[in-house]
Structure formats: C-alpha cells, structure tokens
Nucleic acid binder design. Structure first.
Lengths: 236, 236
DNA sequence: CCAACTCAGCACGCTAACGCACATAAGCCT
DNA sequence: AGGCTTATGTGCGTTAGCGTGCTGAGTTGG
C-alpha cells in the first residue's frame, strides 16, 4: 500500500497539517503519456506523485518540445495554482506510469493561504523547480546529447524505486528536444560501455556510478539544491 | 526624479502597502557589469529596477554561462529571499546601467509574510519568471542565434526608456551563451537589413517592427504571460 | 599625437547535431 | 505462421555553430 507520506512534500508536513488534507487526498493511477496539464488550461487538481514521474514540457507552435523539469515523489505538479497564475504555458505529461495522490486545486489553495508549513514547503519546492529549469536551460546550451542523456537518466532514476525505466528512444528524444537518432547513438555508447542495457523501450541501469562519471555538472547542481531546500531540518 | 512607482511591482501595490515600504526604499545607481547576487551567497537587499536591466545568469564551472532571465522595471531581483531558499545558484549582473530602489531583505520578508497584496504580487511575478526561464530553455534548444538575438534585443528594449542600448557583442555573447563571432554575424545581418545600427557598444534599434517579424515565438509567449500575470485588474 | 587597448569583422577548418532514407528486428494480433 | 506495427540501428549529405588566429577601425590616455 502506498502512503501519502511517500511523497516528500506530504511527508515533510507536520502531522496535524497533513491530517487536514488526508480526507481529501485521492489516490490515482497515472499512465504513460497521460496529460495532467495542458498549455493555458486550468488544472482541477494538483498531483503529488509517489512512484510516477511527470515531465514538464515546453511545446512550441511547430510541435517541437523540450522538457524543462521533471517531477517525482519529491514534488508536486500544479505549482501555478498557488502561485496565483492558475495556468501555465507548459504541459505536464506522465513520463513513467505509477501512482500519485491528487487534491482539488481549491483545497490546496486554502491550505496554502493559511500561511503555515505547507506554504513554506511549497515555496521552497518552487524555488528548487526554478533551479532545475535554469540548469536545464544552460545544459541545453552547452552540453552534448551524451551528457544530457546521462543527466536525464539519473534524474529519472532518482525518482524511481528500481533501476528499470520504460521509455522509448523516441520519447526520450522528445524530452531532450533532440532527434531520435541522436538518442539511439548516445544510448548505444552507454550500452557498449556497459552502463545500461536497452531493450525495446525497457532500459535497465547497470552501472550507476559509471553514469555519474559521465554526466555533466548540471545533475549535481540540481540535486544539491533540492537536498538543500527540502531537507527536514531547514524546512520545518 | 525617479519615483518608486515606476517599478511595476511597487506601482501595482495599493497606496497603504506602499506607504509601509517607502521609508525603507533606498535609491541606488547600478553600473554596467555590477553583480547584485553571486551563486550561493545570501543577498542583503532585494532590488526593484527602474530604468536598469539585470540579467540572471547561470554560470558553470568552466566559466561558460547563459542568461536564464532578464529583470527590468517590471520585476524584482532577489526572489530567492522570499521563496525561502535565501540563496540561488545563479548570478545577477547589471546588463544596462541605471537606477533601482533597494530594500533590506528582512523587510521584504516581513512584508511578504503579512500575506497581503505584496505576497500575491511577488508570487505572480515569480510565476512569470518561471515562464521566462522555461521559454529560454526551449529557445536555447531549438532556435538559431539570429532569432535569439532578436528576442534578446526586444526583451531589453521593452525594459528601456529609449531605443538605444549600451552593450558590446562580447557581452551579448555571454548572455546568450554563444561565441562572440556568432553575435557579430547575426548583428551584421540585422544591420544590413536596416533593423539596427551598431557602433562600438552602442546599439540603436531603427526598425522595431522588423525585429518583431524576425523573432521566434518565444518573445511573444513570455510577453503575453507577463501581461497576463501582472496586469492591474487581476492582481489587486 | 602616438601607443595601447577595446571592439568588430573575417577566414579558415572542424565537429555535433540535423534531416532523410532505409534496413532490421522484436513484439503483437489475428 | 504470417503480416502488421512499433522500436532500433545505420549511413549518408548538410549545416549551424565552434575554436582559432588575424585584421583593422575606434577610443582612450599618457
């Protein structure tokens, strides 16, 4: 059984605050490719992933896209609701199927405007998101597809229980905003180096330390900032 | 004389809330290249630019950098203070000299945690910043230096009183995270097309509509979102 | 007024990534 | 089994942007 506390934000909340929300939290299954938020559309709920992963994508008129951030058990999908804008121009797509708890948008806003621990927590999380987006921008600019693939794999791995992910090269290419063939090539290198094994949409990470050696600094910067902003000691 | 209300955030604040802050607002001159915030360092003040422009840069270990957002009269530098993280891994550099009002960080936080109009305003602004960063990331990935230069020029122009900016190609290259020669080439095209005139660090925009024709959609997306989030009607 | 410096422009060759066209290959569904 | 769809691997030519080295035109300051 999956408990709401497996989501890091909910888990960091003091018991009484969590108790407020518990009756309204609804467990849902998220399936691969499902959209939780479309550009410019108001979300009815926010989502607290448990073992699912959600990608925030920025999609352009011609259909080209790039992942700007990834959200897993450590976060929440639907930041724009409590930030006051209600909508975002970006899209939220389930990148790895799994489970999440969801909460009606209005209830989250109520909790947020009580200005208690939940507010502090959500604001700190949003700042972590800012950092992730900034680092993604600079990584897009300066680093090779090889490095970005490593970063992407590690970010996903950190949000998954095991060492397997279900993901075609086509989809990874959409996330990274590169050609499918580019991913084929980079993934091939990683496979030949014995770091991952790739099999028709099923990736198994064999040598995680090896990936960490190849990845650019962007991964560590983001991870460090999440750890700093969302550790139990500072937040509560 | 420059009034605090020339900053859009301060200008949107109801009179009584602004009155709270006025005695503590200190006018300062920002000079080109001045750093307002270093990676991981706590800021003592937040800044409300009037006619100055500040770039938020993400700098990497090897010194390569990319601008992730630009802040002018419409915004505030120092979002991380009220978001709870206190520091950011990014750097804030004055990109166009001018004037700003500044406020002690603690005073801003006090005002923020009163949970009044200022809080709503700052949160909405932060969401606009999120959008700008996301769009920058996707633009870095998919658009040519030509297009990005147009975007950058227009974003700067929107934040300046006139049609001139003081900025060498070298600095623009740092912002965009490209080679200086790349900027030379793109700027040359714009100059030959009669859109701008370039003269040793002095750029004059001659044909703004022409720039708007060449720019990628990223500019409009960001502008629209700022207008939506920070118009007087919705915020207050 | 000349020297030093800064800024802009140009000419290479180089490489990563692109777009496109195929060739397999592996699972899926009668 | 056989044919379909989907996923992956490869091999082109093309191109945008990079790194480097250099030229020359302004600007500044002694």
């Amino acid at each position: 059984m999956l408990e709401p506390q497996q989501n890091a934000l909910l888990g960091l909340l003091p018991e009484e605050d969590l108790a407020h929300l518990l009756p309204h939290l609804e467990q849902v299954t998220l399936s691969l490719g499902q959209s939780l938020s479309e550009s410019g559309r108001q979300m009815s709920h926010v989502y607290f992933p448990l073992d699912a992963i959600v990608s925030l994508l920025c999609v352009m008129e011609d259909g080209a896209s790039t992942e700007i951030a990834v959200v897993g058990y450590e976060g929440i999908v639907g930041v724009s609701l409590f930030m006051g804008g209600e909508t975002t121009p970006s899209r939220a797509i389930v990148q790895s199927a799994g489970t999440a708890y969801r909460l009606k948008g209005q209830l989250l806003k109520n909790e947020f405007y009580r200005a208690g621990p939940m507010q502090r927590l959500l604001l700190r999380y949003t700042q972590a998101l800012l950092t992730q987006m900034a680092q993604t921008a600079v990584c897009n600019r300066h680093h090779s597809v090889d490095q970005q693939l490593c970063r992407w794999l590690l970010l996903s791995l950190d949000r998954l229980p095991g060492d397997k992910l279900i993901m075609t090269q086509e989809l990874i290419a959409n996330m990274l905003g590169v050609r499918r063939e580019g991913v084929t090539e980079s993934a091939g290198k990683l496979q030949r180096a014995g770091l991952i094994s790739y099999n028709r949409g099923h990736i198994t990470v064999i040598d995680r330390p090896g990936l960490e050696k190849r990845v650019c600094e962007c991964y560590a910067v983001v991870k460090r900032e999440y750890d700093r902003l969302l550790n139990h000691h500072d937040v509560m």
